[in-house]
Amino acid sequence: MQESAELRDVTALAVPRVGRVEKTGNPTLPYRLLDADGTEVAAVSEFLRDMLANDDSPTSLRSYAYELLAWFRFLRAVEVAWDRAGRAEARDFALWLKTVKKPPRPRRPDTPPPGSINPVTGKRYIGENYAPRTRRHARAVVRSFYEYHRDMHGRPLLNPFPNAKRVDDRDFRLCR
């Protein structure tokens, strides 16, 4: 199956900060994702309930809900329904996460600029963009969301985020 590979300029993409993650106070669903209209996203709630049933912690559910919020915001910006997203959307989401700046947080006036080096420890302060680890986590969360729905409902047929095909050095050393 060949999908159209529409090229998007992700650097010019305006992803609105709509929707939110809400703490519920409900022990069977501690967090839920609300869309731009304030409506619960049922597909995400079902996924989070399953995670909780599999002994994932409420803090993990919160983390996953925020990653899915970013994905749903992105899909809204590119006007693609979550169950219609393909590899092009996955690619563009990954590129968008790589280029977009994180939302600014309140900072004290004497705080060093993001990404600068601490003169005492030599470590870098948190930067303005999402770190590779954060981007990998986002892709893994969205991939598991789609795998859950494929396993439970047989749809969507395509997971936009396939398993990584990259062989790292550790795997290579084991093959020798």
Rank of each mutant, 00 (worst) to 15 (best):
T99K: 10
P156N: 00
G122V: 08
V141N: 08
D83N: 15
A138S: 02
L69E: 07
R62H: 08
N129C: 07
D35H: 01
A131H: 07
R124D: 15
N163T: 15
A85E: 07
L34Y: 07
E40F: 05
G25C: 05
N129Y: 14
E46W: 11
E89K: 04
H153I: 00
V44P: 05
G25D: 02
A42Y: 13
S144C: 03
K165Q: 12
P58L: 03
K123Y: 10
D83E: 08
F161K: 01
G25L: 09
R150T: 00
H153F: 14
G127W: 08
R73H: 00
R76A: 15
D37F: 06
A85H: 03
A90E: 01
V41G: 04
P106R: 13
R76H: 09
A77M: 02
K102D: 01
E89T: 08
K101N: 11
R135H: 01
N54K: 09
E46F: 05
Y64L: 10
G122L: 06
H153G: 03
H153P: 02
Y64P: 00
R135L: 11
G122M: 02
S57C: 00
I117E: 09
A85T: 06
Y130H: 02
P58N: 14
R73V: 05
R107A: 08
A43M: 03
P58A: 07
T28K: 04
A53F: 01
P112I: 13
L68Q: 05
G25T: 08
P162A: 04
R124S: 10
E40N: 03
F72W: 14
L69P: 13
M152I: 12
G154N: 14
H149Q: 12
T59W: 15
T39I: 14
T121Y: 00
L69Y: 12
S57T: 13
M51I: 00
I126D: 09
P103E: 01
D35C: 06
P103L: 07
K98A: 07
Y146Q: 00
G154S: 01
R139P: 05
K98Q: 15
Y64H: 15
V142T: 05
R133D: 09
E67C: 04
A70N: 11
D35S: 01
V141T: 15
G154T: 06
L97C: 03
D37Y: 10
D83V: 01
N118D: 14
T121I: 04
R84D: 15
Y64V: 04
K98G: 11
F93L: 11
P58C: 01
P156V: 00
D83C: 12
F47N: 04
F93M: 10
A94K: 15
S63G: 08
D110L: 03
A94P: 02
D83R: 13
M51A: 00
D56M: 13
H137A: 14
G127M: 14
L158S: 00
P162T: 14
L97H: 03
E147D: 15
V100W: 07
